[in-house]
Computed example of a mutant assay.
Amino acid sequence: MGLYTLAAARAELARLRPLLDELITVRADATELAAALAPGGEPTALGGLPEWKACSARFDELVTSLQEADVQIKGVAPLLLDFPSSVDGVPVLLCWLEGDADLAWFHRADLGFAGRRRL
C-alpha cells in the first residue's frame, strides 16, 4: 500500500483491533510463562513450556499479520504502530500507541516518536 489517508488508517485500525487485543493478551501470557520458566520462577496457572511455545508461535503469527497489513510496527511493549501518510504534503506517520482510544497522533517521518503531535 502507498500512503494512508486519515480515514483509511482509522478504518484499518478498527479492522485490526481484534488482532491487536489478542496480541496484547498473548504478549502478557508469554511474558508470564517465560518468567515462570526462568530459574527460580514462580509457577503460573497458564502452564509451562508447551504453553510458552504456543504463545510465542501465536505472537509471531499476529505480528506477521500486522506486517502483511502494511502497518509499521515500531514497538511491541507497548504496542506502537505507524501508518505512512502525509499532512500538507509533508511525509508523516499516523501514530497509534497501545492505550490510545483512536488514531489521533502523527509525527514527521524523519523525527520519530519524539516529534509526536496531535492531529
Rank of each mutant, 00 (worst) to 15 (best):
W96V: 09
V63E: 04
L13A: 08
F113E: 10
G99F: 13
R10F: 07
T44C: 01
P39R: 03
D110P: 00
H107T: 08
E98C: 11
P39F: 08
V76F: 09
E42D: 10
P43Y: 04
L33W: 06
L33N: 01
A57Y: 09
E22R: 11
G89M: 07
S85V: 12
R58M: 09
V26Q: 00
L23M: 12
G41I: 04
V76T: 15
P91Q: 01
L33A: 02
A38F: 10
L37N: 06
G75I: 04
G47Y: 08
L97W: 02
R117E: 15
V92P: 00
D110H: 04
P18F: 00
Q72D: 14
L37G: 06
M1W: 11
A30F: 01
A34R: 07
R27E: 10
E12F: 00
Y4T: 12
E32P: 01
V90E: 15
P18Y: 02
T44V: 03
L37S: 08
C95A: 07
P43G: 02
L119D: 05
A54V: 06
A9V: 04
P91I: 03
L62Y: 00
P78W: 00
L37P: 09
R108V: 05
H107Y: 09
V26T: 07
R15N: 09
G99T: 11
A104C: 11
L23A: 03
L16Y: 03
R117N: 04
T64D: 13
D110F: 00
I73N: 08
T31S: 15
E12Q: 12
V92F: 02
F113K: 08
G99W: 12
L23S: 01
P18L: 04
M1S: 15
D102L: 13
L33E: 02
L13R: 03
G99A: 14
P84S: 12
R117T: 11
A30G: 05
L93A: 07
E51G: 05
